[in-house]
Amino acid sequence: MPRVVVFDEFGGPDVMHVVEEPVIAPAPGEVRVRIEAFAVNPLDRMMRSGTSPATIPLPHARLGVEGTGVVDALGPGTTGWEIGDPVVLTAVPDASVRGSYADYTTVPASRVVARPAGLGVAEAAAIWVAFSTAYGALVEKAAMRPGDHVVITAASGGVGRAAMQIANQIGAVPIALTRHAANEEDLVAAGAAVVIAADREDVVDAVLHHTAGKGADIVLDVVMGPGQQDLLKAVRPGGTLVAAGFLDPRPTPFPAGPPLTIFSYRSFEHTLDAVVVKRMAAFLNAGVRLGALRPAIDRVFALDDVVEAHRHLENGLHAGKKIVVTV
Rank of each mutant, 00 (worst) to 15 (best):
P2E: 07
P2Y: 10
V4T: 13
G11Y: 09
V15Y: 04
V23C: 08
P26R: 08
G29K: 00
V31T: 09
V31I: 11
V33A: 07
I35R: 04
F38N: 11
V40K: 07
N41D: 10
P42N: 09
D44K: 04
R45V: 14
M46T: 13
R48K: 11
S49D: 10
T51Y: 05
T51E: 04
S52T: 06
T55V: 14
P57Y: 12
P57V: 12
R62S: 10
G64E: 00
E66K: 06
T68M: 05
D72A: 14
G77Q: 12
G77K: 12
T78P: 12
T79V: 15
E82I: 03
L89G: 10
L89H: 07
L89Q: 12
V92T: 13
S96E: 14
V97E: 14
S100T: 13
Y101T: 06
D103K: 08
P108K: 11
S110T: 13
A117S: 12
L119I: 04
A122M: 01
A130N: 15
F131L: 11
E140G: 02
K141P: 05
A142Y: 08
I152H: 06
M164Y: 01
Q165A: 10
I166L: 10
A167K: 05
Q169W: 04
L177V: 01
E185L: 07
L187P: 14
A189Q: 14
A189T: 14
A190D: 14
A190Y: 13
V195H: 02
I196C: 05
A198R: 03
T211L: 02
T211G: 10
A216K: 02
V222N: 10
V223N: 00
V223W: 01
M224T: 02
P226Q: 00
Q228M: 09
L231C: 03
L232I: 00
V235P: 02
R236H: 12
P237E: 07
G238P: 03
G238I: 03
A243V: 03
A244L: 09
A244N: 11
A244T: 12
G245K: 08
F246Q: 03
L247H: 08
L247T: 15
D248H: 02
D248N: 14
R250Y: 04
T252C: 03
P255W: 04
A256Q: 07
P259Q: 08
Y265G: 01
R266M: 10
T271D: 05
T271L: 05
L272M: 09
A274L: 11
A274R: 15
V275C: 08
V276W: 01
V277T: 09
V277Q: 05
K278N: 11
M280P: 02
M280E: 15
A281Q: 15
A281H: 13
A282P: 01
A282Q: 06
N285P: 01
N285F: 01
R289E: 05
R289T: 03
R289Y: 02
A292H: 15
L293M: 07
R294D: 00
D298W: 02
V300F: 11
V300I: 15
A302N: 05
L303R: 13
D304T: 07
D305R: 13
V307Y: 03
E308Q: 13
L313W: 11
G316W: 06
L317C: 02
G320I: 00
K321D: 03
